[in-house]
Write a protein that binds this DNA or RNA. Structure first.
Lengths: 218, 218
DNA sequence: ATCCTCGACGATCAGAATCCGCATTCCATG
DNA sequence: CATGGAATGCGGATTCTGATCGTCGAGGAT
């Protein structure tokens, strides 16, 4: 999953990035509203963390423009503590959740997870396909009840597929959602990791649709 | 389906081509207005993506000339962000849709699909003929409810026929819309694929009109 | 009018060429 | 040492080509 952070304050931005990366997300960050708006329009994110107090273009404006342009990705808004009006305005402008600063990283991660889950239309934090279960809270994967050890990258790939069960996911889409901005687009890593996942979880789990991409059975 | 890209900026042009090709379109590209105009007049496209800011001949001029010459293919105009006047002028000159740069590839594909669908007079993204259903979004085909596996080329051919249900489609037309510029025009591939499609979906679906081409029942 | 013949066009098949995905190995990094 | 990413060769699926076969229909002969 790939996240965009729009936050001008360098310390907080760095801290956020670290938290998210160690939770297994691919992270891009923007330091002002303009850059944030641009990235949000251009790149494919599974969620955005948006600070409302920004230089150049205000956070609310950015959010509003995204929504008007038809971008539907979940947005988690960061507000100053007890800034009730900000919160209301944010929800009005189309925020999906909000969090008052300061906050604990666990809470951020939890909310983010919930956001992404809701966006993909899943009710529980446990995703199931065939004999495979993936718990997004603990990051554990089991096959027929037996725990399976996954590496970070394998997990990300599998998780994205399971979030989009039934849909045909192109290689490009996978690359866009698993890696951040600068990544060599013609490389066969995706194939390699698909192979590795199949080796661990069985060959039937992931179906290849030749020329289009991969798909997980509903 | 075959698309013409008229875009002078090499990076964007390449990126567009890649996106479209991986979505299964045949792509030609022109790097300035003159070339674009020529191709648009000469070749048969199912849609055109036209950047307004072009060297040599301006995009609007090109569009205007096409329309005056009676070319009716759907045109998706790319405008600079918030360039309201461009948008208005574009729509005046006969653009069918517009998209502000920058944009996400997914959105481009979605709009293109909508454009082509509208042009062929279909309301939904699902095309039906006899017991055969084709969903242009997911790229799946079913016969009497049963999913049928189609190869990329078979799918393209079928899709074109279904978009032009009832009309008699000549072999030349099929070649022009399924392959891009450089393709050997005297080859019997079309016949081969027609045979294969009939084998998968039943012989009655596609009628041969001797000397003219093929046709799908309304 | 009916039948026959011939030519043109379309259908089908088999094999060649090509493309695409897969596995494996290797190297870099931390 | 474990992991992630790059390079390579293999193998099967897909596409294309060329050859052959079948069929339709025009037009002439009866």
């Amino acid at each position: 999953m790939r996240i965009l952070i729009v936050e001008d304050e360098p310390t907080l931005a760095r801290q956020l990035r670290q938290t998210l990366e160690s939770a297994g997300y691919a992270v891009d960050s923007a330091h002002d509203g303009e850059e944030g708006q641009y990235l949000g329009e251009t790149e494919a994110y599974d969620a955005v963390i948006l600070d409302l107090g920004l230089p150049e273009v205000d956070g609310l404006t950015v959010l509003d423009r995204w929504r008007k342009a038809g971008h539907k990705m979940p947005v988690l808004v960061l507000t100053a503590r007890d800034s009730w009006s900000d919160k209301v305005a944010g929800l009005d402008a189309g925020a999906d959740d909000y969090l008052a600063k300061p906050f604990q990283s666990e809470e951020l991660i939890a909310r983010l997870r919930a956001l992404i889950r809701r966006a993909s239309g899943n009710a529980s934090s446990e995703l199931v396909a065939g004999g495979v279960r993936l718990d997004t809270r603990s990051g554990r994967v089991t096959l027929d009840g037996e725990p399976v050890k996954m590496t970070a990258q394998e997990y990300k790939l599998l998780s994205y597929l399971m979030h989009h069960k039934g849909k045909v996911v192109s290689r490009t889409e996978l690359i866009e959602h698993i890696y951040d901005q600068d990544f060599d687009r013609d490389s066969n890593t995706i194939e390699v990791f698909i192979t590795r996942i199949r080796k661990k979880l069985g060959a039937d789990l992931i179906t290849t649709i030749r020329g289009l991409g991969y798909s997980l059975q509903g």
